Amino acid sequence: MSSFKLGFIINPIAGIGGSVALKGSDGMAMHALALGAKPKANERAALALEVLQPYKEQLSIYTASGEMGEHCAQQLGFNVNVVYQTQQVQTHSDDTELAVRALISEKVDVILFAGGDGTARNIANVVASEEHFQVPVLGIPAGCKIHSGVYAITPKAAGRVIELMVTKELVTLTTGDVMDIDESLFRDGIVKAKRYSEMQIPSELRYVQAVKSGGKESDELVLQDIAANVIEEMAEYDETQFIIGSGSTTAFLMAELGLENTLLGVDIVYQQALLCSDATETEIIESIEQHSGVTKLVITLIGGQGHIFGRGNQQLSPRVLRAIIAQEGGKNNIVIIATKTKLAELANRPLISDTGDNGLDQILSGFMPVTTGYKDQVLYQVATPQ
């Protein structure tokens, strides 16, 4: 079984100014310590990790040295991989950003961090870039200011959301705003919040939605929502070429585009026009190489089995898939679409990548977003064949 890779960062001085009435910690850590404040961020982070202790054998924690995560995770008995070494006694915002970059390079499944709005801003500086936007992030509230929508309600609640991911429950992927206030004004009694960015966050899935309950009519509405989401992306990224895989869900997308579809084959679409029907592996490779922009792949899964590669779509060979993920965007160039009903039929079994290339299957494993409606995604595990 693939190990869940949890990225973990603590801002050790987050919230340190609160207990001594500084109303924030940005640039005030030394002053707070001089006034007798005690760091609490590691204690808050430990409350979240304690929820995950029953799953020690199923996950590995990737973190920064010392009080930035290493000590907390080790004390709770987790398998710890230190991927960033801080060189400072008192950590700085630069340490947070460098640690995030190190976690991204390790391809962690999610980044769990403890801090406040300032910490969220530091993380968003890296994660919210287009290249890394698909890396989900979840905050453990530990700062003086928690205005951002990227935090769990409590530290234990943060642990519960990660627990859902580790145990392969369906977890909705939503967008949370990164907010912060002007601390200098706040200390004068003036609250002025500002939206700085947004990040994708995992949250508890709402399993029942009125338009997506059982029945043929609502199934069609769900497929329309999924198609609308993909078509909007096609319009937004006008220079992006789309390879459309086989299956009834992708066939519905092609029908919404008003294009002929090869139900059991692969089609190539550019600017919402059909470039190639029932394309071979060679034709797909040539199209990727000749196209000046990015090429994305839209696929669905085999119902009841969960295979996304290696069953009925051999045209999507390891060579094709490596060419797609080698482009800017990496794995994010693979767009998986499916209804939540179809995912629920898997009974928590992972999606399967069985390309015949073990190294590639390992790259594709981990949690990936699945588009399940309009502006609606869930995180779902992709695994290698057992």
Results as ranks from 00 to 15, higher is better:
1 M>N: 14
6 L>C: 07
8 F>W: 01
18 G>W: 08
38 K>E: 14
47 L>F: 04
61 I>V: 12
64 A>P: 03
73 A>W: 09
84 Y>D: 03
87 Q>C: 00
89 V>R: 08
91 T>P: 06
92 H>D: 12
94 D>R: 13
96 T>N: 14
96 T>G: 10
97 E>C: 11
109 D>K: 00
112 L>D: 06
117 D>G: 02
122 N>I: 04
125 N>Q: 13
127 V>D: 02
128 A>K: 02
130 E>A: 15
131 E>T: 13
154 T>V: 05
158 A>M: 05
171 V>N: 07
184 S>I: 12
189 G>N: 04
193 A>S: 15
196 Y>D: 05
199 M>C: 02
200 Q>K: 12
202 P>H: 03
206 R>V: 11
220 E>Y: 06
222 V>M: 02
230 V>N: 08
238 D>R: 14
243 I>C: 06
246 S>G: 05
248 S>C: 01
250 T>V: 00
250 T>A: 03
259 L>N: 03
270 Y>G: 09
278 D>C: 11
282 T>P: 10
285 I>D: 07
289 E>G: 13
294 V>S: 15
299 I>H: 03
310 G>F: 00
311 R>K: 10
311 R>S: 09
314 Q>F: 09
314 Q>C: 08
318 P>M: 06
324 I>A: 00
330 G>V: 11
340 K>R: 13
341 T>V: 14
345 E>A: 15
360 L>M: 01
364 L>M: 04
368 M>F: 14
370 V>E: 07
371 T>F: 11
373 G>D: 00
375 K>N: 11
377 Q>Y: 15
377 Q>P: 05
379 L>Y: 05
382 V>G: 15
383 A>H: 07
384 T>N: 10
